[in-house]
């Protein structure tokens, strides 16, 4: 990428590169990225794209193909996918934008680009073993008992500790070091 100065303004011109697409291709779920012909059926079928102008899955894939790595990884776009898989169902070329975005998320996460909501949720899961420990109060316990259900939920929180060590410590280190 090089800058070009015109009348005192700095503009960055992006030179297309297939490196990012190749990188995504290697991640589980991203294999079909290069099959995309940019026909737009995914976006046409997407509930989110139909509900807001802020989300355009086909555009995102276009950016991956063109190699706009930084922009893609630091944007919220790949985190806005609901993972409803309608795009995957409809794509005639065998591409799953949903899976590609999950793959992009894992790359983004490794480099410290994670929306706060996700960060917090993951932190909770890795500590408690599940999502709603704090939300499980006496009220809920009583409701369960009234229904004849076991109020003890028996959730395991040890296994997630092992996962944190194996998969997330180095992530955390990466985050803290800001890379």
């Amino acid at each position: 990428m090089h800058t070009c100065t015109t009348k005192g303004q700095e503009k960055s011109i992006h030179v297309p590169t297939s490196a990012f697409a190749k990188e995504v291709e290697k991640v589980e779920g991203g294999e079909a990225i290069n099959k995309c012909i940019q026909c737009g059926i995914c976006t046409a079928s997407c509930v989110v794209a139909n509900a807001t102008d802020l989300y355009r899955p086909r555009r995102m894939i276009q950016k991956i193909i063109l190699g706009l790595r930084e922009e893609v990884l630091s944007s919220d776009q790949s985190w806005l996918c609901l993972n409803c898989r309608m795009c995957e169902e409809r794509c005639q070329e065998g591409v799953s934008p949903a899976e590609i975005f999950l793959a992009v998320r894992t790359i983004a996460a490794r480099e410290g680009h994670v929306p706060r909501v996700f960060k917090e949720a993951v932190k909770t899961v890795l500590e408690d073993g599940w999502m709603l420990k704090d939300a499980y109060t006496d009220f809920q316990e009583d409701e369960r008992e009234d229904l004849g259900l076991n109020p003890e939920l028996h959730m395991n929180n040890e296994f997630v500790g092992k996962l944190r060590k194996r998969y997330f410590e180095r992530k955390k280190a990466a985050e803290e070091s800001g890379s």
Binding site: Q38, G40, I41, A44, A49, R56
Partner: peptide, 29 residues
């Protein structure tokens, strides 16, 4: 219009069809 049609719904009042498509040249859904 460059964009494959995603789905078709019907307007029951006049039997017209509503199609969902992304115009990939403008990005508008």
């Amino acid at each position: 219009v460059r964009g494959r049609v995603g789905e078709v719904d019907e307007n029951p009042e006049n039997d017209n069809l509503m199609i969902q498509v992304e115009n990939t040249e403008t990005g508008s859904v």
